[in-house]
Simulated scan of single mutants.
Amino acid sequence: MPYALRMHRDQGTGWTATGLRWQDGAPRLTATDGRERHDRPLADGTPVAWRITGPRRCTGAHTERGHRPCPHRATVPAEGTTSQCPPCQNADRGLQLARDRILDDGREYRLYLAWFAPGLLKVGLTATERGTARLLEQAALTWTFIAHGPLPAVRRAELALAHGRVARERVPAAAKYPAWWSLPAPGARHDALTAARTRAHRLLAEQGHDQLTPLPDHPVTDQVELYGLTDGAPDRYQQVKALTDGAHLAGRLRRPIGGHLFVDRPDGPPLLLDTRLLTGWTLHADPGATGCDGLTLLPRARPAAEQDALF
């Protein structure tokens, strides 16, 4: 087992996965043994060999004082991307913000536009102190900040741009995957985002969002190369839809794409794993593992190019 992902003291001691986080522009896999939290960097080509065991347990909540382990050690459903029990969801600061249960917290926020594919443009907000982590976590391919200000003002602007159909508030993960096969050229991505930014600034100026400070000249950032998608996603892969107790996962990682991992394996096409499915499960090093089993898989393939009609 490589040091980069050695999250155990011995082969019999497991670590509960708590997610993939981006810190200082780099992805890190996080885990806990119930007392300590650890994280390890994820690099292109890193080998992994895990035995995954349950039950799948709640990963706790992020509060003003930092991460709080689940006080009930509650179990959560084996399938799905939710790894928190209802009480921890209610206590989680990020979910409180997303559900408008925190109207103002005194911090500065930035409004952003994130491009995922032609026709898939998202507007969102993030605390200024978080830097670009939010854009990295959600696998934004191209993005820019367009304004900043207090939370209530930024939230009103976010809703205005969504209601004005400049961009949508949410882009589900399933809508992002097909775009990875055939991305427009960098210039086209840049032009699409800058055109949307112009529309956004015009609408906000017309509506008089005076508490916002616009950022009309903020640079456009393109993260396609960072995610290893310059040549697109693999032509064929299998998407992991669910894990089970006793599953095995072995192979070599490609560069993470937001919270997703492509895993190259010797006995089949690559796997695509949404790491939210991994959270709450216990990972054990399994150096002898060479294959993958105990996984529910969905085959995916690049659509065949349309052929011009002969007649």
Rank of each mutant, 00 (worst) to 15 (best):
M1K: 05
M1H: 09
P2H: 05
R6C: 09
R9F: 10
D10W: 13
D10P: 00
T13D: 03
T13R: 13
W15I: 03
W15V: 07
W15Q: 09
L20W: 08
Q23H: 13
Q23K: 10
A26I: 05
R28K: 14
T30W: 12
T30Y: 11
A31L: 07
T32E: 01
E36S: 15
E36C: 14
R40M: 10
L42F: 08
L42A: 05
A43C: 09
V48Y: 06
W50D: 04
P55S: 11
R57A: 07
C58G: 04
T59R: 07
A61D: 03
A61W: 01
G66I: 13
G66W: 15
P69D: 06
C70S: 03
P71H: 12
R73Y: 07
A74V: 08
T75W: 14
V76R: 08
V76K: 00
V76Q: 15
E79Q: 14
C88P: 05
A91D: 15
D92E: 08
R93F: 15
G94H: 04
Q96G: 04
L97C: 10
A98R: 01
R99W: 07
R99N: 15
D100E: 11
I102T: 14
D104G: 03
D105P: 09
Y109E: 04
Y109W: 12
Y109H: 13
R110L: 14
R110D: 11
L111S: 14
A114E: 08
L120V: 06
K122C: 06
L125M: 15
T126L: 08
A127R: 13
E129V: 13
T132G: 02
L141A: 11
W143Y: 15
R155C: 12
R156C: 00
A157P: 05
L161I: 08
L161V: 02
H163G: 10
R165D: 15
V166I: 15
R168T: 13
E169G: 08
V171G: 03
P172I: 04
W180T: 01
W181A: 13
W181K: 09
S182A: 12
A192S: 13
L193A: 02
T194E: 10
A195F: 07
A196D: 00
T198N: 07
E206Q: 05
E206L: 06
L212S: 11
T213A: 09
T213N: 13
P214S: 12
Q223P: 03
G228C: 06
R236M: 08
Q238M: 00
K241N: 06
A242P: 01
L243P: 02
T244D: 08
D245E: 02
G246W: 09
G246Q: 02
A247M: 15
H248A: 11
G251L: 03
L253I: 08
L253C: 08
G259T: 04
H260S: 15
H260T: 15
L261T: 02
L261G: 01
V263P: 05
V263Q: 05
L272F: 07
L272V: 03
L273P: 04
T279G: 01
G280S: 04
W281G: 00
H284V: 05
H284N: 08
A285H: 01
A285M: 00
P287H: 14
G288H: 10
T290P: 02
C292D: 05
G294Y: 02
L295Y: 07
L295Q: 06
L297C: 10
P299C: 12
A304R: 15
A304W: 10
D308N: 05
A309R: 09
A309C: 06
L310F: 09
F311R: 09
F311G: 12
